[in-house]
């Protein structure tokens, strides 16, 4: 009993320390790359700009799977009792979406594109149905890259 409690507290502590650190680093890296790629526009218009001469259009996409840490999962579990915004999942999904968009942009930059239109985001939980394994989110961002 005491051993179980110790293991549990250790996991919560490890999750808190490493999870916080990983999240902070990830957000820094996201901000840096977003700044770096900001010249490449990505938006959800369905048709290309009428006055743009396009030589190439290609489907590009980026995918990422991110897991929540133990501490945040516990915090989210507590939220389920009291209700209200589940911030631990909010930041997880935000990270995943922004990362997926960045990866999509990387692919578009590699082909020398000017913009990405009709960007769609798809989210799914790959561990859905696997009991208490919940806590990983998969985001796929895709769109059509256009080149002058």
């Amino acid at each position: 009993m005491l051993l179980n409690l110790t293991i549990f507290l250790c996991l919560v502590f490890l999750g808190y320390v490493f999870g916080r650190h990983a999240e902070k680093k990830h957000f820094e890296s996201i901000l840096e790359r977003e700044n770096q790629y900001k010249a490449l526009l990505a938006f959800s218009a369905r048709f290309p700009p009428a006055d743009m001469a396009i030589s190439e259009s290609k489907l590009v996409g980026g995918t990422v799977v991110i897991s929540i840490d133990y501490f945040k999962r516990l915090a989210a579990g507590l939220r389920n009792i009291f209700g209200g915004p589940v911030t631990s999942y909010e930041s997880l999904i935000e990270r995943a979406r922004r990362e997926a968009i960045l990866r999509m942009k990387e692919e578009a930059i590699a082909m020398g594109a000017e913009m990405i239109i009709n960007v769609k985001l798809e989210t799914s939980s790959i561990t859905k149905g696997a009991g208490d394994q919940v806590g990983a989110v998969e985001v796929y961002a895709y769109g059509t890259a256009l080149k002058h």
């Binding site: 996991l11 490890l14 999750g15 490493f18 999870g19 990983a22 999240e23 990830h26 995918t63 990422v64 799977v65 991110i66 897991s67 929540i68 840490d69 133990y70 945040k72 999962r73 990362e99 790959i126 394994q133 806590g135 990983a136 998969e138 796929y140």
Partner: peptide, 19 residues
């Protein structure tokens, strides 16, 4: 991935699998 569920972060093997 089970370990990652403790520490949090990207599950690279799943990302690859899905790609």
């Amino acid at each position: 991935a089970g370990f990652k569920n403790i520490f949090g972060g990207e599950l690279k093997s799943y990302t690859e699998l899905l790609t």
